[in-house]
């Protein structure tokens, strides 16, 4: 696996005074499944639009499958894209909408158009609703049609911006399988989401956006590996437990919901239990938690509910 499917350097986009994307150095390795994460408004879609040549960066460079900014169009036939949700003609059927997109593609072979369209529809489980007007599609069906549209011809890179938005749990799982199977076929997948748990299992790499900046990027193992395991003591006197833990060298001890939590910094977990029991505390539960990617994500982007504006 050499080279990168997408690289950007110092990529910046300003809308008026607002800096939507600020000096982003993205690196999506060939063959990876790259999870592009970030809260609402953090600049994921804006970055993706620049990578696809839909908007012109205020500053910075893009390389898409080996082509620089001015020649992105030469790479696009090898790129399937889903950008900021589905968009189709309301009064055409799902199949007719795909026909239109296939007709617009100078490289698509007209002789195989019908079979390719139907197999794309089949792949997203939409064949039964192929003749229904787009207008009558549910949100999930629309999302599926948009994914089908990106699969009309074989692609080396798929850019999927929030592909699971509006899908039911079953649909979300199917998208995950789809992403995995595309990766198995050798495609690189850049998939954005603000719900990490949805794509966590299939990603090999992640990049985390926060207020327009890329705050972390790398293989999943490295990103998740930064954080230390945490010990949690459940007791009726969490303040006392917290004091004991701090004395034992546990860092960042907090009290939350009838338990004390802290980062294990070389302290052996069994010592904590022993320490608490010795002091006469009623310990009702003890856990050592390895932080999930989700926790890392929250730590990087802050826990606040507010969007980055």
């Amino acid at each position: 696996m050499t080279g990168a499917a997408v690289t950007t350097s110092g990529l910046t986009k300003k809308f008026g005074h607002q800096v939507a994307v600020d000096g982003v150095d993205l690196e999506v390795p060939l063959g990876s499944v790259y999870g592009f994460l970030g809260p609402n408004g953090s600049g994921k879609t804006t970055t993706i639009r620049m990578v696809l040549g839909l908007i012109v960066p205020t500053a910075g460079e893009v390389q898409l499958l080996g082509n620089p900014l001015g020649r992105i169009g030469e790479s696009l036939p090898r790129v399937g894209a889903l950008v900021e949700g589905p968009a189709f003609h309301l009064y055409l059927s799902g199949r007719d909408n795909l026909r239109r997109l296939d007709a617009a593609d100078l490289r698509a072979d007209p002789a195989t158009s019908a079979t390719r369209i139907d197999s794309a529809l089949d792949r997203v489980g939409l064949l039964a609703a192929a003749t229904k007007r787009y207008r009558a599609y549910s949100l999930g069906m629309r999302q599926r049609l948009a994914i089908a549209a990106s699969l009309l011809t074989p692609k080396e890179l798929l850019v999927l911006d929030e592909p699971t938005n509006g899908l039911d749990p079953q649909g979300t799982r199917e998208v995950r399988h789809l992403v995995a199977s595309l990766a198995d076929e050798g495609s690189t997948v850049l998939v954005s989401s603000h719900l990490l748990s949805e794509i966590e299992q299939v990603c090999t790499h992640v990049g985390v956006m926060h207020v327009g900046r890329l705050v972390a990027q790398g293989p999943v193992s490295e990103i998740g590996g930064d954080a230390r395991p945490r010990a949690r003591v459940e007791t009726d006197q969490p303040q006392v437990a917290a004091r004991i833990m701090t004395e034992l060298g546990v860092r960042d001890v907090r009290v939350d919901h009838g338990s004390a939590v802290g980062e294990l910094d070389g302290t052996a977990p069994e010592k904590i239990v022993a320490g608490c029991v010795q002091q006469g505390l009623a310990v009702t539960g003890f856990r050592v938690e390895t932080p999930s990617l989700e926790d890392t994500f929250v730590a990087l982007t802050g826990e606040g509910f507010d969007v980055s504006g």
Partner: peptide
Amino acid sequence: RYLLTVPV
């Protein structure tokens, strides 16, 4: 945006 990314 989808026509332009086909690309057209």
